[in-house]
Design a protein around this nucleic acid. Structure first.
Length: 557
RNA sequence: GCGCCUGUAGCUCAGUUGGAUAGAGCGUUGGGUUGCGGACCCAAAGGUCCCGCGUUCGAGUCGCGGCAGGCGUACCA
């Protein structure tokens, strides 16, 4: 709903209560916060408040009576704000406001003027935020789960940008350590196998066929391979896998601003520096030959090892250093998107952030829940190790980028996602994303038709918008008006999912209007002009919303 | 054992800081355009919001206790 209308209604309620108190018709008491909500049902108006229900027990009067008294005084105020056309009391004591169409029309002008900026706000105040997501280690191709992370992270980044944050997208990966050694050994073994040698494949090795393919590439591209040089196999595999990861991301329309690898953190001295600082400030101690971070002091369940007794650092050490590094680069607000297998990690990360003197809440961790894959009823195994998994690439090829992204973004972050390949495929033409895109394409088609017919598309200010009186027209404008709030609440909650629902609603509102009324040539030329303004506003808003989700807004389908 | 997530229509899922008769898509059934794109529109059927207790004027939403599924709980990565 428009902000102005909300303000006007809030003021009216406040005045009404004050007046009632003056007259002694309402006892004085602490006033609960005045809240206006959009009723779930249209017949309850555009804005409603339950203030009378909340006051009932405090002033010892039936809620309906209180509402009536307040409304009586509101109605005595003059002049009445022009944005509100009707105020009513409804059982059991709600006060409902109906907006005047007049309050709606300026919105269309705003949208026309703001264009691609419609929905932008300054909520973020230019704060620098770093959002880290995907961050898959290069031990295999990206999976469907990574796809979900990519889609959510990117949409979130776009949304935060829209509300005035300065956003940086980063991908972090571990390029040293045990996992990479196993990767190297796996490729090495396959290479030997190709050369016709008897091998024993490493027990914990990666069994996917992509490992064999990499070995084949080595055989094809490299001469003089030192078969015992594990480092060579590891580096080669890492490079190849990264190439494919980057290509997958590119085809999924995800662009990162930065890539950070674990090795950098060691080589730049960041790990050492950060650990020394923690040590100096007494947050690290030695026990049984290992170094421990005193994370329990900052709310974690227990202390954590940062260097094992054999002298090897755990993963926590570079992770702490990495987060410190983000702050040192000037970011004030950090977002990590992690899988549910990392939820035990959140406590220690937050503890580290606090120990290093940053506000605990400046780090927000989103735990994106699991993706389970199905093919019909059959649940598919998802193991990178075993090499049995569906890649993001396969999904992209089967269902397409836009549908895949929409599918990932329709769910809340903390609900498990059941991804049925059959369904995704069969729904590729029934997918709600096409419903939204279709609305956009239809509007483009209308505008094209207008051009063919030589119908002039006028500016909002040159048009009599008050001709838009139909229920469907007014509903559409109301929906348009909600867009900025939807974007803001998505940014606040770090949930891009609200936007997908909103776009479906807006598209529905438009389709509904479209099937009933003509835009080009409705008889009244001025009415046609007004409808063109409306339709263009829908187009702009659909585009803006789809852009935030990273989904295209096609002119033809 | 302990921690986190989930449980809402046949299926997949929404449901803001507690509000009125709990929603959408798919699927099912039945309708709709002398016209700007039928990938659309309208309608019907479909519910013990997992169970119980509590807080409240009011609970799908908050609290406590259960049940079920998933994921964690390492000097693993």
């Amino acid at each position: 709903m428009t902000r102005e209308a909300k303000e006007a209604a809030t003021n009216l309620i406040r005045e009404g209560i004050d007046k009632a108190r003056e007259k002694g018709e309402l006892a004085h008491c602490d006033l609960p916060p005045l809240r206006l909500e959009v009723p779930s049902e249209k017949r309850h108006g555009d804005l409603a408040t339950s203030i009378a229900l909340q006051l009932a027990s405090k002033v010892n009067l039936p809620p309906r009576k209180i509402a009536e008294v307040i409304v009586k005084h509101i109605k005595a105020i003059s002049p009445q704000p022009s944005t509100i056309s009707q105020i009513e009391v409804a059982d059991p004591g709600f006060i409902n406001f109906f907006l005047a169409p007049k309050a709606l029309y300026p919105k269309l002008k705003d949208i026309e003027e703001e264009g691609a900026n419609y929905g932008r706000s300054s909520l973020g105040k230019g704060k620098k935020v770093l959002i880290e997501f995907v961050s898959a280690n290069p031990t295999g191709p990206l999976t469907v789960a990574h796809g979900r992370h990519a889609a959510v992270g990117d949409a979130l980044a776009n949304t935060l940008q829209m509300v005035g944050y300065e956003v940086y997208r980063e991908y972090y990966y571990n390029d040293v350590g045990h996992q990479m050694d196993i990767l190297g050994k796996s490729v090495q073994a396959r290479y030997h196998e190709l050369r016709g040698e008897e091998i024993t494949f490493p027990e914990d090795g990666y069994k996917g066929t992509y490992i064999t393919r990499i070995a084949q590439e080595i055989a094809r591209e490299c001469e003089d391979v030192d078969r015992g040089d594990l480092g060579f196999f590891r580096r080669f595999a890492e490079e190849k896998l990264f190439e494919s990861i980057k290509k997958d991301l590119k085809d999924f329309a995800i662009e990162f601003d930065g890539w950070v690898k674990e090795k950098d953190l060691y080589e730049s001295g960041q790990v050492k520096k950060t650990m020394e600082r923690l040590k100096k400030e007494g947050h690290i101690y030695e026990k049984q030959g290992a170094l421990w971070f005193r994370s329990s002091k900052f709310g974690d369940e227990k202390d954590r090892v940062v260097r094992r007794s054999d002298g090897q650092p755990t993963y926590l050490a570079p992770d702490i250093a990495y987060h410190q590094n983000k702050y040192e680069r000037g970011f004030q607000y950090l977002i990590d998107i992690l899988g549910p297998d990392h939820h035990g990690y959140v406590g220690r990360l937050k503890a580290a952030v606090e120990a290093l003197g940053h506000e605990k809440d400046s780090l927000r961790v989103i735990i994106l829940q699991l993706v389970s894959l199905y093919r019909g009823q059959e649940k598919l195994p998802m193991s990178t190790r075993a090499g049995e998994f569906i890649t993001l690439r396969q999904v992209l090829d089967e269902v397409g980028r836009d549908a895949a992204r929409f599918f990932f973004l329709m769910r809340t972050t903390n609900s498990h996602l059941n991804f049925d390949l059959n369904l995704a495929k069969s729904q590729s033409t029934e997918n709600p994303v096409y419903y939204v895109q279709y609305a956009h394409a239809r509007i483009c088609s209308i505008l094209e038709f207008a051009a063919e017919k030589g119908v002039e598309v006028k500016k909002a200010e040159a048009v009599d918008l008050s001709l838009l009186k139909e229920k469907e027209e007014l509903e559409t404008i109301k929906t348009l008006a909600q867009f900025p709030e939807v974007v803001e609440s998505g940014a606040r909650a770090l949930e891009p999912q609200g936007l997908t629902g909103y776009l479906q609603e807006l598209a529905g509102s438009f389709h509904n209007f479209y099937t009933k009324f003509r835009v080009i040539g409705p008889g009244d030329r001025n009415l046609g002009s007004a409808r063109l303004v409306l339709v263009k506003a829908v187009k702009t808003t659909l585009q803006n919303g789809l852009r935030l989700l990273g989904i295209s807004a096609p002119e033809k389908m």
